[in-house]
Design a protein around this nucleic acid. Structure first.
Length: 923
RNA sequence: GGGUGUUUAGCUCAGUUGGGAGAGCGACGGCCUUACAAGCCGUAGGUCGCAGGUUCGACCCCUGCAACACCCACCA
């Protein structure tokens, strides 16, 4: 076999699998389905995706191998705002404004871009080995899904669960659209608290001092509020103040919203530009004065001087003007929470506008129950708290977006402002008997992207039609996702699916941690610390990596910093590790931690693991196929030796571990069990122990046949066991196994997953091999510490062994010799004077290496001292325990007995070691 | 302000019903031993965040504290 070279074989295998349609659901087993969280169609695969999809793929492959009818539904999301932003930026580079193109032509451009770049993410998923069912791939804006969206919108509207209203919403002044609460990111930023004096209307020499973080909104003030119980101001309630810079007076009101102890206890109220003030305004019937236009520059409701100014320019001017009037009491530094648009990064503005909303409470209630009663289960369970916290305090969902790319809202307006909702204009006309001469104009807005993805699990399967796929595969079994979109997506899917399917979208939700960089920082484009999974698979030069991380920066000044950090962290770029190594890394790090620091060293380690497996296979083939026809060791009498029975027994236990791990979604434990079996047991011990059997002249035909069979059979089984995690290397090796050992199928993908066989558990073999390992380890230890090279044969004497020791040495002498490389190996009779030796213990049996010329006496004494010391500490601890009457009385008898046995063993061992030490001291 | 997590070897992390603290990487020493130097063999390294409590016995259960992280929230 050639060296392990993942790159070529991985791509060719994927192609073969896909061409052969192996990813399609097949058979008539139990249905098992998972819907992919639809990636942004114009996006690229990031580490979080790669992580989640690797986990899902292992489950899908596992269940497929177990004979389930397995569907991993593929699809992509149109990602409204992100995609529109991207295309807008590209057009801007060509000097084109979307408004010049108009809606239709702009959308043509977006579709063009989608066609051009839409295959990036799917290509990347293929490189990851994801066994997605590509044939039924869907897109949130395709015809079928658009039909589902229309259907849902119309039905919800008919039930009064969708309504239109003028409300204060989060407005993005750059993107010119409303966004939902969830799309606002609030962070603490330094700011100021301005204290202004508002003169009383009936006494301009007296002032109310109000504090604000938004001076410019004062132009929209319609009241000043104080707390009802605040004695300082009670006499002023009901009076008016003159609003400076504006030619109007506003009322002083009392409202419990005000905190007496904050600032002066007086609050300016701007109902049209602050969510709290909006509520205060409603309670007190205050007027709403909107002073901004869509850009958040001042509109005609502001005094003439300020009209047309940007909000921050206006702020400066207003503060200056107030200062000139002597109305600025003071300006304090103040940390405040600033809401910014998730996508644009600009400060969003509470803005009064006409929008569509989903009345959410009626939908939320059943969705809460579904999790409460266990129809849906979060893994880990504590994420249910996040879910409940959000759902129990959920607010109506603003679903209209002032954008072009998305599902256009199916509402039409006549000239008089009447609203008609329907699946299309014809239906609307028919339903409302509107003649052709009534001009209808469709709503210009589109729906929030999450509206369509909320329908994901059932709309992808053909809803609203009653399709066979829907019948078979819905509810889906599992959702794997990051905790960051529990609120955005998971909760909304649960609500919509319960509403329209009357069943849950998925039975379990596996929430992954967030993949971060080595410093624990979230990977992001703007920070320039992201890794592209493909760069780990294929490798990338440092120059290319720097270019990738610093191109298209929103903040170009960051580029230099990012370049320096990148060159420091990856001086030589990133090596190529292959998909299998990357995937195995993901399984191994899939712990329950919330953040997962991604460490390339782990990937390197698992690449070494792949290499190990590769070379082990090489060894197996060299010693089986190259020596005999497969029929020769498959047929005929086999005499399984102890090591054959032992590794087979270990394999059964490993299969059980992997099964248990997969049933409990502990991918890390599954990976660990496989890793340890292959490396620590199969390679380090079994392959080594098989050598004397394979090479010795005295091995019988039946023994040889048995070992050859075990070698290749164990390899074949472990390949199937590991396939869900390491799909490529396992397929590549499996193909080389002759068809009378494996089945004659064309792919390992569709082979049965190994089933543990209890009849093959052999504890006698396990303890015998345990003894062999112990003897070998003791002698390796002496060699290592005494600096005796492996090539130098050493004399080995055994002393004080029992009957079992004697039987074992007799039986396994050949095996031991091959691993120990002794000059001679024999029992020392009780009466014989033992020569001065280095000593190790296996139970009570002393393993001696006589010292003549080999061993440094002082070093051996030191070694013995260390060992004795260690044991004596243990003895002291155990004795203390046993001398405690409470322990002896109250602890379970088996625990007490265990301690007693342990003490006896330790004492005996200590005695042996002391004896040796004494002998050395006597020289 | 509310909530949820985390704290174990130099680093990254396991530790599944409380009964002798583990892995990988790194470090150190020795090996080109006929599958693999992407390897083999060995060694060192931990008051399990701190303080109490429960228990015969606590990394594990309870209470408090500290540090860090994230989520939610309208304090102008």
């Amino acid at each position: 076999m050639k060296k392990y070279q993942p790159q070529e074989m991985e791509q060719s295998w994927y192609q073969k699998w896909e061409d052969a349609n192996y990813f399609a659901p097949s058979g008539n087993g139990q249905p098992f389905s998972i819907s992919i969280p639809p990636p942004n169609v114009t996006g690229t695969l990031h580490m979080g995706h790669a992580f989640q999809h690797s986990l899902v793929d292992s489950l899908i492959r596992y269940r497929r191998m177990q004979g389930d009818q397995t569907l991993w539904q593929m699809g992509t999301d149109h990602a409204g705002i992100s995609t529109q932003m991207l295309v807008t930026e590209q057009l801007a580079a060509e000097g084109i404004k979307p408004s010049e193109l108009g809606r239709e032509k702009f959308l043509d451009k977006v579709w063009e871009w989608k066609e051009e770049s839409g295959d990036t993410i799917t290509r990347q998923l293929r490189r990851l080995g994801a066994s997605l069912h590509w044939e039924t791939e869907r897109f949130t804006l395709d015809e079928g899904m658009s039909r589902a969206v229309l259907e849902v919108f119309v039905r919800l509207h008919e039930e009064g669960l969708i309504y239109r209203g003028k409300r204060l919403v989060n407005w993005d002044p750059v993107l010119h659209t409303s966004i939902s609460d969830l799309e606002v990111e609030s962070e603490e930023e330094p700011g100021h608290l301005w204290h202004f004096r508002y003169p009383l209307a009936d006494n301009p020499n007296e002032f109310m001092v109000v504090a604000t973080t938004r001076p410019e909104t004062m132009l929209g003030d319609t009241a000043v509020a104080v707390h009802p119980d605040d004695e300082r101001y009670q006499h002023l309630v009901g009076k008016e103040v003159q609003l400076p810079l504006c030619d109007r007076s506003i009322t002083i009101i009392a409202d419990h919203y005000v905190d007496k102890d904050f600032g002066t206890g007086c609050v300016k109220i701007t109902p049209a530009h602050d969510f709290n003030d909006y509520d205060v305004g409603r309670r007190n019937n205050l007027a709403l004065i909107n002073i901004f236009d869509e850009d958040a520059s001042l509109n005609d409701n502001a005094p003439e001087k300020y009209r047309g100014l940007d909000r921050y320019e206006a702020r400066k001017l207003i503060v200056a003007d107030l200062d000139a009037l002597g109305l600025v009491e003071k300006i304090e530094d103040h940390k405040m929470v600033v809401p910014r648009g998730e996508k644009s990064g600009v400060v969003v503005e509470p803005y009064l506008s006409d929008q569509w909303f989903v009345k959410i409470k009626p939908l939320a209630e059943p969705a809460i129950k579904a999790v409460e009663n266990g129809d849906i289960e979060f893994i880990p369970k504590n994420y249910e708290n996040t879910y409940f916290a959000w759902m129990r305090d959920i607010q109506d969902w603003c679903i209209s977006r002032q954008q072009w790319w998305g599902h256009r809202i199916p509402a039409w307006y006549d000239g008089e402002g009447n609203i008609f909702v329907g699946r299309n204009e014809a239906e609307v006309r028919l339903k409302h008997q509107l003649p052709d001469d009534v001009t209808l104009r469709q709503d210009e807005d589109v729906l929030d992207t999450w509206f369509s993805s909320a329908l994901w699990t059932f709309s992808t399967l053909g809803w609203p039609d009653k399709t066979a796929d829907l019948e078979t595969f819905h509810s889906t079994d599992l959702l794997v996702t990051g905790h960051d979109i529990i609120t955005f997506w998971v909760s909304r899917m649960i609500m919509m699916t319960l509403k329209f399917m009357d069943e849950v979208p998925f039975k379990k939700i596996y929430v992954t941690g967030l993949v971060t960089d080595a410093d624990g920082k979230k990977m992001s484009k703007s920070k320039g610390n992201g890794l592209d999974p493909l760069d780990i698979i294929d490798g990338i030069s440092i120059d290319d990596l720097v270019r990738k991380r610093t191109s298209n920066m929103l903040q170009p000044k960051m580029a230099e910093k990012i370049e320096n950090a990148t060159r420091k962290e990856y001086p030589n770029g990133i090596d190529s590790y292959g998909t299998d190594a990357l995937r195995f890394t993901f399984y191994s790090i899939s712990t329950r931690s919330r953040t997962i620091k991604f460490d390339l060293n782990r990937v390197e380690g698992y690449q070494h693991f792949c290499n190990k497996l590769w070379n082990a296979a090489n060894f197996v083939f060299m010693n089986t196929l190259e020596h005999a026809a497969a029929t020769d060791f498959n047929n005929g009498e086999k005499d399984f030796g102890v090591v054959d029975r032992w590794i087979t027994s270990e394999l059964q236990k490993t299969i059980k571990s992997v099964d248990l791990a997969m049933q409990t979604y502990r991918f890390d434990l599954a990976a660990k069990a496989i890793y340890e079996f292959i490396w620590d047991e199969f390679c380090d011990w079994y392959l080594e122990l098989s050598k004397p059997i394979l090479y010795s002249q005295s091995t019988s035909k039946a023994e040889l046949r048995a070992t050859r069979y075990t070698l290749i059979d164990t390899l074949e089984t472990v390949l199937r066991l590991a396939h869900p995690f390491l799909p490529f290397i396992t397929e590549e090796i499996w193909q080389k196994i002759p068809v009378n050992i494996r089945t004659d199928a064309e792919t390992i993908m569709l082979q049965p997953f190994p089933v543990p066989n209890n009849a093959l558990i052999d504890s006698a073999a396990e303890s015998d091999v345990g003894w062999i390992k112990a003897v070998v380890t003791v002698l390796r230890n002496i060699r290592g510490e005494m600096d005796i090279s492996f090539g130098k044969p050493i004399p080995v004497l055994f002393y004080n062994g029992n009957e079992t020791d004697k039987r074992r040495l007799e039986t396994y002498r050949t095996l031991l010799e091959s691993l120990v490389k002794p000059e001679r190996m024999e029992w020392l009779a009780a009466g014989d004077g033992a020569p001065v030796s280095a000593t190790g213990l296996v139970g009570d049996m002393q393993v001696l290496v006589p010292m003549s010329g080999l061993i440094d006496k002082d070093a051996e004494i030191a070694r013995l001292d260390k060992e004795i010391d260690r044991k004596q500490k243990d003895i002291a601890r155990t004795e203390a325990k046993l001398s405690n009457p409470n322990f002896v009385e109250k602890a379970p008898t088996e625990v007490v007995q265990k301690e007693k046995d342990k003490l006896a063993d330790l004492a005996s061992a200590c005695e042996q070691l002391e004896e040796q030490k004494k002998r050395l001291g006597n020289i």
